[in-house]
């Protein structure tokens, strides 16, 4: 087994490298090239070089508008609900229960988002919560297929992803700082606002970024809980590629989506890094 270490390293990297190239780099290049092409007579793609697809993006403006409104609102809603829970887990829960409670938060994220969204069709549909509300006099309340239903689905789906990074940054925080603040006479709220909150900002920034990125590409939640009325760019993409088979225009929409994501995420990271200090390394598990 006298193989030179460099060759062994190269050999070990080869399969993953080839896979990444064939299934990631190449397909993304194809999308880029197709976005300048034209739709074939029977759908699909015909080579061309035109900017028409990009100039025509306005035709799908509603999808972009919905995505760019509901993704930030959804991220904010996740943050507001996740922060107190992360705080409780990191600073108030008994250490014995902590690991188990944490696992209970993370596990739903890895289970099928399809089935979790389906659960809300069941709950928000005419015979679920609206039927219960009708009993107390609130009749004719429509919940399913509204932006509210989509928002509930978003929070339900992505809450775990927000809790975890915030938990990590709160858990790493030097507890002596909190004691010092209290000893120096600061009331709990002031300690929270001047010590805990600023120190947990890296976690907040990471959580918001993860949730926002995933929400930008969301398809299932609006498809299932928005009922065709509340649709995202993801829904427009499914329509363009699988129904109307306009690959060139669809590629332009996909490029625009990735571009918007890149710009917002880069701007966001620049803005947060200024006051968040060093980057917080976070794994999803």
């Amino acid at each position: 087994m006298a193989m030179r270490p460099q060759y062994r390293t190269a050999l070990f990297l080869l399969p993953a490298g080839v896979w990444f190239f064939a299934m990631l780099v190449l397909p993304l290049v194809v999308v880029f090239v197709f976005s300048f092409g034209e739709r074939g007579p029977a759908g699909g793609y015909v080579p061309a070089f035109t900017f028409d697809n990009f100039l025509n993006l306005g035709a799908r403006w509603t999808a972009f508008k919905n995505t760019l409104t509901l993704a930030p609102i959804g991220t904010l809603a996740c943050l507001l609900i996740a922060y107190p829970l992360a705080y409780f887990l990191a600073l108030r829960a008994s250490p014995k229960l902590r690991t188990m409670l944490l696992i209970l938060v993370i596990v739903p994220f890895w289970t099928s988002i399809l089935i979790r969204s389906y659960a809300w069709i069941f709950l928000l549909g005419g015979r679920g919560i609206p039927a219960l509300l009708a009993l107390v006099g609130l009749e004719d309340l429509r919940l399913i297929n509204t932006p509210f239903a989509v928002l509930v689905g978003i929070v339900y789906g992505y809450l775990p992803l927000m809790v975890f990074p915030i938990y990590v940054s709160l858990e790493r925080l030097d507890k002596r700082l909190l004691e010092a603040s209290a000893d120096l006479g600061a009331p709990p709220l002031r300690t929270f606002l001047t010590v805990t909150l600023p120190l947990s900002m890296p976690g907040v920034a990471t959580g918001c970024m993860l949730v926002f990125i995933l929400l930008m590409g969301e398809f299932l939640i609006p498809a299932m809980l928005g009922g065709g009325k509340v649709f995202f760019v993801g829904n427009a993409l499914v329509d363009l590629f699988l129904q109307s088979r306009n690959w060139a225009y669809g590629s332009a929409v996909a490029m625009a989506l990735v571009l918007i994501m890149l710009v917002t995420v880069t701007a966001y990271m620049r803005a947060t890094r200024r006051w968040a200090g060093g980057r917080d390394e976070v794994s999803l598990m």
Binding site: L24, P27, G217, L237
Partner: peptide, 10 residues
């Protein structure tokens, strides 16, 4: 990159 874009591209 969103799963949907990976799906389309592939």
């Amino acid at each position: 990159v969103p799963g949907i874009v990976i799906g389309i591209a592939t």
